[in-house]
């Protein structure tokens, strides 16, 4: 297991290096001129030249790349052209909101997927209707779901809020930045309830698609596992059906579903960024949306790098979970 962890971590480092190389290459070949973006179109030749030298833009490419990576390692993602703050500081500001939404979406997706798979496999009553509802939901893209959700649950029914993270102006902002957690820490159940209400629509909008993908994979692997000889052995022992399910079937079925979850996380990032715009969610989606029109390359690259790291780390965790679940998986 230790060797497996070491191997996976080496792979992570290599993938991230590749990612930085891609980002760096993009920056080099980008048509927009960072100096112009910074100094404005009217800057003098001399000023531009001085700024270029200052930023090291005249150094050899290799040296520039080395500096870029070294800075990254030290947590320096550069300075945003737009906000003129360190990109890392900007990200620290906007990340918690996105993180909270993404985590909420992921947990919801997994719960929906398990319910979907178990209910349809064991033919629970109501499984058909539940399945239909999910499938219809999953056939629409996240932004349509989001808009539909707003129309129905905010405008028509008025049950749920449609913008932002909270209605409380005095909502706590620390220590974690995750509003639900901070509300608990500060002992404010009203804020917690309100935050969950705000999370519900955007969270569902990003969760339904992945839920169906994960659920389908889990379902088919449940069906396969239920037909295995060892499930028959478990029944032949006279175990209760819940025990058979819990101890023998689920454990042996989660492998493929875990892989699928890892893949879906990437798609969910895309969903989060779009859905944030629709719900005016103060997260990285907003930040990126504002950075793109002004060619704020360091900001965009910072967010991309962060998402890349998150994606790779999550999939590494998935691999390790799989190895833990199945003793036959070797390094």
């Amino acid at each position: 297991m230790l060797i497996l962890v070491a191997k996976r971590l080496t792979a992570v480092v290599l993938i991230l290096l590749a990612l930085t190389a891609v980002l760096f290459a993009l920056e080099q070949t980008s048509t927009s001129d960072p100096i112009k973006t910074m100094l404005g179109p009217g800057a003098s030749q001399a000023l531009v030249a001085q700024k270029r030298a200052e930023l090291g833009l005249d150094d050899p490419i290799a040296a520039q790349y080395a500096r870029y990576v070294t800075d990254l390692v030290h947590g320096d993602l550069g300075t945003s052209y737009r906000t003129r703050r360190a990109v890392s500081a900007d990200i620290a500001t906007f990340l918690p909101a996105t993180l909270e939404l993404a985590l909420f979406g992921l947990v919801t997706a997994v719960l929906l997927a398990v319910a979907f798979a178990v209910a349809t496999t064991l033919r629970w009553p109501g499984a058909g209707a539940f399945r239909l509802l999910l499938m219809v939901g999953a056939s629409a893209p996240a932004f349509l779901l989001a808009i539909g959700g707003i129309v129905v649950f905010y405008r028509e029914l008025g049950w749920l809020p449609a913008t932002g993270r909270t209605d409380f102006v005095d909502a706590p902002t620390g220590p974690t930045g995750l509003l639900t957690v901070d509300a608990l820490v500060h002992g404010r159940p009203a804020v917690l309830g309100d935050a969950l209400q705000h999370l519900l629509l955007p969270g569902l909008a990003i969760a339904v698609g992945p839920a169906v993908s994960i659920g389908r994979v889990l379902r088919s692997s449940l069906v396969t596992t239920l037909r295995t000889d060892y499930t028959r052995t478990a029944r032949a022992k006279g175990l209760r059906e819940v025990e058979v399910m819990r101890k023998h079937v689920l454990r042996n079925s989660i492998g493929p579903a875990l892989s699928m979850t890892g893949l879906q996380v990437g798609l969910m990032f895309a969903g989060v960024l779009v859905v944030e715009l629709i719900f005016a969610w103060p997260g990285l989606g907003q930040y990126t949306a504002q950075s793109i029109p002004v060619d704020d390359f360091p900001a965009i690259a910072g967010v991309m790098l962060l998402l890349g790291v998150a994606y790779v780390l999550i999939n590494t965790v998935v691999d390790l979970l799989q190895a833990a679940a199945d003793p036959r998986i070797e390094a």
């Binding site: 060892y230 028959r232 052995t233 032949a236 022992k237 006279g238 059906e241 023998h248």
Partner: peptide, 28 residues
């Protein structure tokens, strides 16, 4: 009923199947 049959398997019956490779839970 399934419960009664399960109880019979538990108390009265034992089973050995053909392929010992696939008949044991690989992760337990």
């Amino acid at each position: 009923s399934p419960q009664v049959r399960r109880q019979v398997r538990r108390d009265t019956l034992g089973a050995v199947f053909q392929d010992p490779m696939t008949s044991l839970n690989p992760t337990m």
